[in-house]
């Protein structure tokens, strides 16, 4: 079997790439995609741990399922907001949405 740590390493890699994307991409939709990556990485982590530590307890999978739900909800609302902002500002560059500043 593949050792646990490999799964975890991969998930960590995806997570960090997602972090990098969130912090650096200028397009809002791209940021959202990076967030989905991060959530995805988390899911992998969760399921890997479930399988290798306690495969009989359904907590791992249930948790992952709920993460799916939350990710979906968040993606929907986030995109709705992006569209609303796009309508007003004609731009989805996140840097331009900076009115809550000093």
């Amino acid at each position: 079997m593949i050792p646990l740590w490999m799964y975890l390493a991969v998930a960590a890699g995806i997570f960090c790439i997602g972090t990098y994307g969130v912090l650096t991409r200028r397009n809002a939709v791209a940021i959202l995609m990076s967030v989905e990556l991060m959530l995805n990485a988390v899911n992998i982590n969760l399921v890997a741990f479930w399988r290798y530590i306690e495969p009989l307890n359904m907590a791992g999978q249930a948790f992952a399922a709920f993460v799916f739900v939350v990710a979906a909800a968040e993606a929907a609302v986030g995109l709705a907001i992006i569209i609303a902002v796009y309508r007003n500002r004609r731009s989805v560059i996140v840097e331009d949405v900076n009115m809550l500043k000093w």
Binding site: L32, E36, W50, F68, L79, I83, Y86
Partner: peptide, 30 residues
């Protein structure tokens, strides 16, 4: 690979089938 076939299916159906498509639409609209 991790013996969670249901989640794999859900992943494809929900994540890819719904969210990714949604993102495509959003990209197109913006």
């Amino acid at each position: 690979l991790l013996s969670a076939p249901f989640l794999a299916a859900v992943q494809v159906l929900v994540y890819i089938g719904a969210i990714a498509i949604l993102i495509v639409f959003a990209v197109m609209l913006t």
